[in-house]
Amino acid sequence: MGVMRVTILPEREVREVQARTVADLLLELGLHRDAHLVVRRDEILTGDVRLAETDEVEIYPVISGGGR
């Protein structure tokens, strides 16, 4: 299991992380599964999807707050 690069939106912060699956990736980054979507090549991935170090993965935060 090698190191992969992931981009966290909206600031496009790049992190390097070791993760076997999408669920592992979020756990490794300390991000809640219900607060993020993991996207590879325009496709949303479920938690069980296996990741390779060559994958280009983006993480979309989904939480908004304030006076609603």
């Binding site: 909206p10 908004s64 707050g65 304030g66 006076g67």
Partner: peptide, 14 residues
């Protein structure tokens, strides 16, 4: 719009 409202940073709801 993906970015968060700048006024909402630190809001209780978050």
């Amino acid at each position: 719009i993906l970015e968060e409202c700048p006024m909402a940073k630190g809001a209780k709801s978050l």
